[in-house]
Design a protein around this nucleic acid. Structure first.
Length: 291
DNA sequence: GTCAATGATTTACC
DNA sequence: GGTAAATCATTGAC
């Protein structure tokens, strides 16, 4: 920019009071890693997305997808911002040149120049604000897509479901795993503890609602557990270790309440299984409590 | 495309 | 804070 006494655009730029809305937008863009220095494509936001989705390791593809899209937004934002700044400077220079031309034919006060530059900058600021606003919106949409866990729900692996079902049906009298048991199950199933809690919450309520429907499944897992128990017993006999007698489960109880086996058929089958060996024996914890 | 199954979330309760 | 119950949203079989 050519030096010209009294014709500087700096003054007007610095006198503008900070717009609170613009500051909010700037802060958000900074926090999301769109504005400011490159932070690995908004790794903070990606980490937030990971935390919100349960932290499972199975969504690394989604994360890289998220980062890629955020980088895209960042690139577009910076390109557009540069374009606006360049256009603003060019236009200001152009106006300054015109004023300089005019100053040959009429006196132009510094105040008038300042006013003109101010008008130009305000106009470009409002355009910049629109750009920042739409960038924020794009980031919000992107985040909502990746943060909404329901959108990227994945069914658990067959093995994980088997492990959970085995535990559920072998603890049918009290299907409330302790915190330690939940952690153990989570580890075995490669899911989070809260996912284990969710699974048991869903299972308990769905089992209770329709015991008949789950009868086949219950029998299947009961048989499975019985086979496992038989193998364990055989191993124990081999080791000449006497087993203490077990007591059959008294029935499914919801928390603090006797669980109603409202289907007589279900109850009969379950009871029949319990006493014919098809139904699993209660599982004792290390402290002797029935789980 | 439909529909049942299923994982996640929300709300209310204790 | 943990759970029951209702509900939402996606998946997967058909």
């Amino acid at each position: 920019m050519p030096a010209h006494p009294g014709l500087s655009i700096r003054g007007a730029q610095e006198e503008d009071p900070p717009d609170p809305q613009l500051m909010r937008l700037d802060n958000m863009l900074l926090a999301e890693g769109v504005a400011g220095p490159e932070k690995g494509g908004g790794s903070a936001a990606a980490a937030a997305a990971a935390a919100a989705s349960g932290g499972a390791a199975d969504n690394s593809i989604e994360h890289s997808d998220y980062r890629a899209k955020l980088t895209q937004i960042r690139q577009i934002y910076h390109t557009e911002l540069e374009k606006y700044e360049q256009a603003c400077n060019e236009f200001t220079t152009h106006v300054m040149n015109l004023l300089r031309e005019q100053s040959r034919t009429r006196p132009i006060s510094p105040k008038e120049i300042e006013r003109m530059v101010g008008i130009i900058h305000r106009k470009f600021s409002s355009i910049q604000m629109q750009l920042k606003q739409s960038t924020c919106e794009a980031v919000m949409i992107l985040r909502s897509r990746f943060l909404d866990a329901r959108r990227k729900r994945r069914n658990f692996s067959k093995q994980a479901t088997e492990i959970l079902n085995e535990y559920f049906y072998s603890h049918l009298s009290n299907p409330y795993p302790s915190e330690e048991a939940k952690e153990e199950l989570a580890k075995k199933c490669s899911i989070t503890v809260s996912q284990v809690s969710n699974w048991f919450g869903n299972k308990r309520i769905r089992y209770k609602k329709n015991i008949g429907k789950f009868q086949e499944e219950a029998n299947l897992y009961a048989a499975k557990t019985a086979v496992n128990a038989a193998h364990a017993a055989a191993a124990a006999v081999q080791n000449s270790q006497a087993n203490s007698p077990t007591t059959p489960n008294s029935g499914f109880q919801m928390k603090d309440e006797e669980f109603q086996l409202d289907s007589a058929e279900s109850k009969n089958t379950l009871l029949s299984n319990m006493f014919t060996g098809g139904y699993p024996a209660p599982c004792y914890q290390s402290d002797g409590r029935i789980q």
